[in-house]
């Protein structure tokens, strides 16, 4: 379980996150929505250790993880993906995946020269695992392509694949569906549900596509102006006056319905 307590992140005078408190229950697929500039990605960055919070704390299963370096959080099983997919562009998709697991014996210079056998064995196991993940994500044919060359949607899949290379506890997905076509988005959604059910991953998903959120997520948390505005099932959220107001402003809220916004 991730618990965020009264988190603030200020950039100069701009309060990107301004006192957000929320809980992500173990085993859930929690949706995080909100208008552009609501502070969702900044919140992710603070939780994942990319940015130090101005104030406030983050707990993971009761342990204070505020301000821990990303690679330490990674070792604890807290993973994230990026809004704009990141990849090691000069390496192949398979190599990208093989880079993920920590503590590989090839990391040590000593083993590079004197532990060749161990490294080779590890490498073979990793390779098999990477191929399995690529198969699961239906991109086996891209295994030997440089990751910098594949399409944006495929990079999103690769990002999801990275989380499958280790035993993650909680995965933060930042706009996993942005720029991805419907068919691919369904593949991604199915993969998320399967990972949640079969491997017990907890997910926190930022997404603008309300159908996607509605199909996958329970509960849904709405952020606006750096704070948590509402939390509940997708139907509760859709009926929430404050949420509609945050998205559309007061003038429009009587005319429009939330269903029209996200898609």
């Amino acid at each position: 379980m991730i618990e965020v307590r009264d988190l603030h992140k200020h950039f100069g005078g701009f309060h990107a996150v301004d006192g957000a408190s929320l809980r992500i229950e173990t085993g859930s697929i929690t949706g995080l929505i909100g208008p552009n500039g609501a502070g969702k990605t900044t919140l992710f960055n603070v939780i994942a250790g990319m940015l130090a919070p101005t104030q406030g704390q983050v707990f993971m299963d009761g342990e204070d993880i505020t301000g821990l370096a990303p690679h330490r959080l990674f070792a604890k099983g807290l993973l994230r993906t990026f809004q704009i997919a990141h990849e090691f562009h000069s390496m192949t998709c398979r190599e990208n995946l093989m880079m993920v697991p920590p503590g590989q014996s090839g990391e040590s210079l000593w083993n590079t020269w004197f532990g060749r056998k161990r490294i080779a064995d590890e490498d073979r196991a990793l390779r098999a695992k990477a191929d399995e993940v690529l198969e699961f994500l239906t991109i086996s044919h891209l295994a030997d392509h440089p990751a910098g060359m594949i399409s944006g949607g495929q990079k999103k899949l690769l990002e999801l694949g990275r989380t499958m290379m280790v035993d993650a506890k909680i995965v933060f997905l930042d706009e996993v569906g942005a720029g991805v076509n419907r068919t691919l988005l369904k593949t991604i959604g199915d993969a998320i549900v399967r990972l949640n059910r079969e491997r017990g991953y907890t997910f926190c998903v930022i997404e603008h596509d309300m159908d996607f959120i509605g199909r996958l997520c329970d509960p849904v948390i709405v952020m606006s102006e750096g704070r948590v505005l509402a939390q509940g099932t997708i139907d509760q959220i859709k009926a929430n006056e404050q949420v509609i107001e945050a998205y559309l402003g007061t003038g429009l809220k009587n005319k429009a319905k939330l269903e029209g916004i996200g898609a």
Binding site: A75, S90, M91, P102, E107
Partner: peptide, 21 residues
């Protein structure tokens, strides 16, 4: 593997920090 870690770090530092590097 160490050399690949270095290349990965050079390619994308943010991502490298979120891998087993």
């Amino acid at each position: 593997r160490t050399g690949k870690s270095m290349r990965a770090f050079s390619d994308n530092e943010d991502l490298a920090l979120l891998s087993g590097i």
